[in-house]
Design a protein around this nucleic acid. Sequence first.
DNA 1: TCGAATGTCTAGCAGTGCTAGAATCCAGTC
DNA 2: GACTGGATTCTAGCACTGCTAGACATTCGA
Lengths: 192, 192
Amino acid sequence: MSVQERKERERAHRHQLIVATARELAESQGWDAVTTRRLAERIEYSQPVIYGHFREGKREIVGAVALEGFAELTAAIRRAVADGPAGRAAVAALAGAYVDFAGRNPALYDAMFLLDTGLPFAVEATPAPLREAFGTLVETLGEVAGDADPAVFVEVFWSALHGLVSLTRSGRLPREAAAQRLTVLVDRFAGG
Amino acid sequence: MSVQERKERERAHRHQLIVATARELAESQGWDAVTTRRLAERIEYSQPVIYGHFREGKREIVGAVALEGFAELTAAIRRAVADGPAGRAAVAALAGAYVDFAGRNPALYDAMFLLDTGLPFAVEATPAPLREAFGTLVETLGEVAGDADPAVFVEVFWSALHGLVSLTRSGRLPREAAAQRLTVLVDRFAGG
DNA sequence: TCGAATGTCTAGCAGTGCTAGAATCCAGTC
DNA sequence: GACTGGATTCTAGCACTGCTAGACATTCGA
């Protein structure tokens, strides 16, 4: 194994270490606690090494965490609908998985859907994990779109889920009755 | 008019000047550009004077801006439904007004629904402008709730609107087809 | 006019994201 | 094994952030 390969492996490992450390810090203490100084301390290098891996700085790190999140969201949704539920059961399963995912990974969710990451959505350059996540939503929900364009329908349903999640998390909707709100939403979107 | 009254008038004026300046800066350059140094420069006092008005610091300033926003949102929605539209027309008018309000006042909207302001929602201590805004939504939409609790129904519809607005603004939903998404949402919620 | 209370300012703290250039290390060549 | 050049990492620092202690200035009542 060449010196070059070993160097590349070390670099990739360090890159992943930074991303994992950022995510850990974010989930335990919030994104405000994730600073490049703290990441550097945690990985036992100086700050400029962080910038050697992420040329666009902190926002690129948040983007890298988000990418992981999309892969995991896709997996969570696929597991939720693995039994092949149809109609309302599919919508409910997907909605439940989405809200559960957001609840278990609040900082990851913020990286994916709230914070500025620079990741392009819905264009040619959109990274594969993002496309795949959205594609999974369309696969699952396309059949209940009725007259609406399935992609547009999915965008609207996703928006509603995102709205419930983010308003609840920021304290603008009470946590009580969250399940009831989800039921109302599923009823409205699975109704035909 | 007493010295005390004049002092209080001056203080109230300065307080309002800080809030208005924060909002102007936020709408023109984003909330990141709103710093207490810049606000102080703009109002021609030093930084500690800002803290003399807002003991909780910047987040209290953002909250003050948000309060104004709620009053304006209420007015905008009331204007949109002043003709007394019913059923789907009422839902559409309200949804259009909400999205339009968010589009015209992006930073104000962020203060209201994204940023940490410390303002309590949906509890005893919730400020009147917030209660009034929500009450206006319930007044307008309550009749189309069908079997659902009107307040819960309104929470869900508002979440969906918020989701559309915030995902579009952050570039996660394309601006194209925004009107189409709104139509799909209104159809789902006005459908009975 | 004076003194106390109030209001405002200066100066500074601890932290942020980020980078230039110095220092160190590594690997290839002789 | 030594040397050299390139790569990597570090130190030091910049410009900025939110915020505050104590000094200074102003105001107003007696």
